[in-house]
Nucleic acid binder design. Structure first.
Length: 311
DNA sequence: CGATTTTGACCGGCGC
DNA sequence: GCGCCGGTCAAAATCG
């Protein structure tokens, strides 16, 4: 599952200057001017014009509120769909791991009973335990983590608080991007492995597949940043979602990159934990708006339209 | 100089 | 049995 189904918070603003001018809400307009822009000749408008404007703005406000509720509804629908897809994906992922070599799987079986991995936040469901032999359940401790990275970041490193040693890289058939193989630095005492590969659909997304569970505590982020050669520290990754592919696809936010300047607390909040979306959604929309070129164009059009109108 | 990464070779499972 | 393919090994290269 890629992240292409992320909610699109673009409001599809009309950038026609004339129309934009007609529909720019008062509060938006005042905000524009509070950003350092000068308002011309406002006082010259008649009272009736202002009343008319007020009505229009009220209607517009109502319309926007309706749009917001629709967006929230779509968000919930998409989110449910995403979780459903992840669940299906997880079921598909389980079977290939049974191909693992016997020696390795026996090794895993003896070691995987340790403490829980921070990313493997849940265990197999009762339903699965009815369907599958015990051995497969143990092997199924596989979690998949999606991490969005900077487009320019070409490293296959997912910073997750543990220290990893790369032992191989391979170009696979289904994806032109190479897949990197990592073992936990505590191997062989810690049997955890991970595979990292860029998503086929969105190459800015790294897909990290974890196998097994760590039987030792997690490194602190500071320790990780200073330990070893320092080459294993990722700077470009930003939070995304993680799911345990073998059971309930609980969504988790990887809060791994607080060092990133633009990555403040609002963007690291869990996206899927609460069904009460608005707070997160509004923040998402705000981010989307401030980065959306369409919005900027609409802004420019609105300003120029207002100036033309006043002239 | 030790730890880590790179990369080609090798291994084993699977489909035909 | 053979070839393909994903995964792993291990020698060489690189880094601090």
């Amino acid at each position: 599952m890629d992240c292409s189904s992320w909610i699109n918070t673009s409001l599809d603003l009309n950038i026609n200057p004339r129309r934009v001018h007609e529909e720019v809400p008062k509060e938006v307009e005042s905000e524009l001017f509070s950003l350092g822009m000068t308002k011309f000749n406002v006082e010259e408008e008649s009272t009736s014009d202002l009343e008319e404007e007020l009505k229009r703005v009220t209607a517009e406000n109502k319309k926007l509120a309706e749009m917001l509720s629709v967006v929230c509804e779509n968000y919930n629908t998409l989110r449910n769909h995403l979780m459903e897809c992840m669940r299906k994906n997880g079921e598909k992922e389980v079977s290939p791991t049974s191909k693992k070599r016997k020696s390795e799987s026996s090794n895993n079986n003896s070691n995987l009973m340790g403490t829980n991995n921070g990313n493997s936040e849940s265990s197999s469901t009762d339903e699965e335990s009815c369907k599958k032999p015990r051995e497969e359940i143990i092997k199924a401790k596989i979690s998949r983590v999606y991490v969005r990275t900077e487009a320019s970041d070409t490293s296959l490193i997912v910073k997750d608080g543990y220290q990893w040693r790369k032992y191989g890289q391979k170009v696979t058939r289904d994806n032109p991007c190479p897949r990197a193989y990592f073992k936990c630095s505590f191997a062989p005492s810690c049997p955890v492995k991970k595979k990292v590969q860029r998503s086929v659909d969105d190459q800015s997304v790294l897909v990290a597949t974890y196998e097994g569970e760590h039987n030792h505590p997690q490194f602190s982020s500071q320790m990780e940043a200073t330990s070893g050669s320092g080459r294993s520290v990722t700077l470009g990754s930003v939070p995304c979602t993680a799911s345990l592919s073998t059971s309930t696809p609980t969504l988790v936010t990887l809060d791994l990159t607080k060092s990133q300047g633009s990555n403040d607390s609002k963007s690291t909040k869990p996206k899927g934990d609460s069904p009460k979306v608005p707070q997160v959604l509004v923040e998402q929309m705000a981010t989307s708006l401030t980065t959306d070129p369409n919005f900027r164009a609409a802004l420019v059009a609105a300003i120029s339209g207002r100036l033309l109108h006043n002239n």
